[in-house]
């Protein structure tokens, strides 16, 4: 029996805007187990990012219950239960890579030795060893994003929330980073929530795919992937992979017909 890490029930979220209320999320129910790799996929405006932000306590739900690690998102945030990776790397230009990666550790009050130890470890995990003294502008977009992932890993949160982390990168870099991310997930046994626009990316990475649809943002399908845990990039040509992709595509299309 796996333990539940994230539980969302009857979640509703309405933003008040100048053009009237926008129903960003409606009746969202979701359970995520420890060690799951969950992708949220859907067109723009389906609320996938908003859902991630609710889990991270960056947005507040209008109605419904959300627990992260058995407590409210706020308590989870305050106990540093998750690492969050944004679409932009958001590295500080005045800090070198090591100093950027240790920023959360400084904020959380880790000792200098502990900071050094952890930075060395996570930079190794994302294959950036040797780049400690480089500044962000000296790194490619893919490397910057890896540094940003390393930064989210430093404080050993069990949950990793990733909002289209590779959205701005080209496909070759993206494939490579996806492979690395899978390895990282397997070696650390973290629970990962991953927002994406890309069907192949979602199918390749996930154990569970949440298909969402806009106006109002809601979940239309939840697919448990039965792909083997060993996933070389070639797996994307397999029959199973195509079947799952097909189901995701149908889910996305069904969501649109409802409009």
């Amino acid at each position: 029996m796996q333990s539940e890490v994230i539980k969302v029930s009857n979640l509703d979220l309405t933003f008040e805007t100048n053009d009237g209320p926008v129903h960003a999320l409606k009746n969202v129910d979701l359970k995520i187990n420890k060690g799951d790799f969950v992708s949220f996929i859907g067109p723009s405006g389906c609320g996938k990012t908003t859902l991630l932000r609710v889990l991270a306590d960056l947005d507040e739900p209008t109605d419904g219950d959300v627990t992260v690690n058995g407590v409210s998102p706020r308590q989870a945030r305050e106990s540093r239960a998750y690492g969050y990776v944004f679409q932009a790397a958001g590295l500080y230009p005045w800090r070198n890579i090591a100093a950027n990666v240790r920023l959360p550790l400084e904020i959380m009050g880790y000792s200098k030795e502990e900071q050094l130890k952890r930075v060395t470890k996570v930079l190794d995990l994302v294959e950036l060893t040797g780049f400690e003294k480089k500044f962000p502008w000296q790194l490619s977009g893919g490397m910057q994003q890896r540094a940003s992932i390393a930064r989210a890993l430093t404080f050993d949160a069990d949950i990793l929330l990733m909002d289209e982390p590779f959205g701005a990168l080209d496909e070759i870099v993206r494939d490579h980073l996806n492979e690395q991310l899978l390895n990282l997930w397997k070696s650390t046994n973290k629970t990962i929530c991953f927002v994406t626009h890309s069907i192949p990316e979602a199918v390749y990475l996930s154990t569970k795919i949440v298909v969402m649809s806009p106006r109002p943002g809601r979940i239309v399908d939840i697919i448990e992937s039965n792909l083997p845990s060993e996933r070389p990039l070639e797996i994307r040509d397999s029959k199973k992979f195509t079947e799952i992709s097909q189901r995701v595509r149908e889910g996305l299309r069904a969501g649109h017909i409802d409009d």
């Binding site: 991270a56 960056l58 945030r77 305050e78 690492g83 920023l103 904020i107 959380m108």
Partner: peptide, 15 residues
């Protein structure tokens, strides 16, 4: 984004 990022680390106002 930078402010949100700080929030995810529970940074204080002075930090």
């Amino acid at each position: 984004l930078e402010i949100d990022q700080m929030k995810t680390w529970s940074a204080s106002k002075s930090q």
